[in-house]
């Protein structure tokens, strides 16, 4: 370890991430259970958490697998869903600019919504001293937490084999709904959700799950249209 590491900041990063760990835990369990329920081998479910390590795209991939989706569409969907991480990457660059490559690469691999939120807050309020060690602490805490609760979910899904027929597909619907509903108070987000929903319904069953791509593209265009329209009406 280079001089960027120090135990105090590393522990502080892990400690400040604690609320995020509690929030992510049930989703880890639900992911593991759904993944084996959808027919993914247990090793693949755990490998997805270990190697991809991006909760929402993992959930969506599982639902695409159970719908028999072809690989290029799964990849494209993963790309679209995770593209927001580029924004985090750009935001952290000014602080990380002087760090050695292996630090930047490792912390990029572990960059999640949760770690970004915690780390960005600290950088903004407390400056850059100990920043790399702090981000490492947050990253490791989130990563180990996600692995552990994925495993719990996989074991649970295997122990209760009927769980999938028992309405687990609905657990996915309920999870997505609960995440998206509070965002619908904003008009562009509402336009995105409404347009994407209607398009997905109208185009359902299209080959290669192209309905999803059409719906998402349409939804994002609608949101942008609403934004531009409201901006113009204000000026």
């Amino acid at each position: 370890m280079s001089s960027l590491f120090n135990t105090r900041d590393c522990l502080a990063g892990a400690r400040d991430t604690l609320p995020m760990l509690v929030g992510a835990a049930p989703f880890g369990v639900i992911f593991g259970t759904l993944a084996v329920g959808a027919g993914l081998p247990p090793w693949a479910a755990q490998a997805m958490s270990l190697l991809v390590y991006a909760g929402s795209s993992q959930f969506v991939a599982v639902s695409l697998v159970s719908a028999g989706t072809v690989l290029p569409v799964i990849w494209l969907t993963t790309f679209i869903i995770n593209l927001r991480h580029a924004l985090y990457s750009a935001t952290l660059l000014p602080t990380a600019r002087t760090w050695p490559l292996r630090w930047r690469a490792a912390l990029a691999f572990w960059l999640t919504d949760e770690t970004f939120a915690v780390v960005e807050h600290r950088f903004r309020t407390r400056g850059e001293a100990g920043a790399a060690a702090y981000q490492l602490g947050s990253s490791l805490a989130m990563y180990l937490n996600w692995q552990f609760f994925t495993l719990v979910g996989i074991v649970l899904g295997k122990a209760v084999p009927g769980l999938a027929d028992w309405g687990l597909d609905f657990a996915m619907v309920a999870t997505f709904t609960a995440i998206v509903a509070p965002q619908l108070r904003q008009r562009p987000a509402l336009a995105a959700a409404a347009t994407a929903g209607v398009l997905a319904l109208l185009c359902r069953g299209w080959p290669y799950k192209l309905d999803l791509i059409v719906a998402v593209t349409g939804g994002m265009s609608a949101a942008m249209a609403v934004r531009y329209a409201s901006r113009r009406s204000r000026t």
Binding site: D169, M172, V180, G197, G219, A223
Partner: peptide, 29 residues
């Protein structure tokens, strides 16, 4: 990314990926 730049429209559009994707999955189900 030292030379990369993030276009402003993409920055804005990314906020609406989650509602679009999740709704596209939920509504038909």
């Amino acid at each position: 990314g030292r030379g990369l730049r993030f276009p402003a429209w993409l920055h804005e559009a990314l906020h609406y990926v989650p509602p679009a994707v999740l709704s596209a999955l939920v509504v038909p189900m």
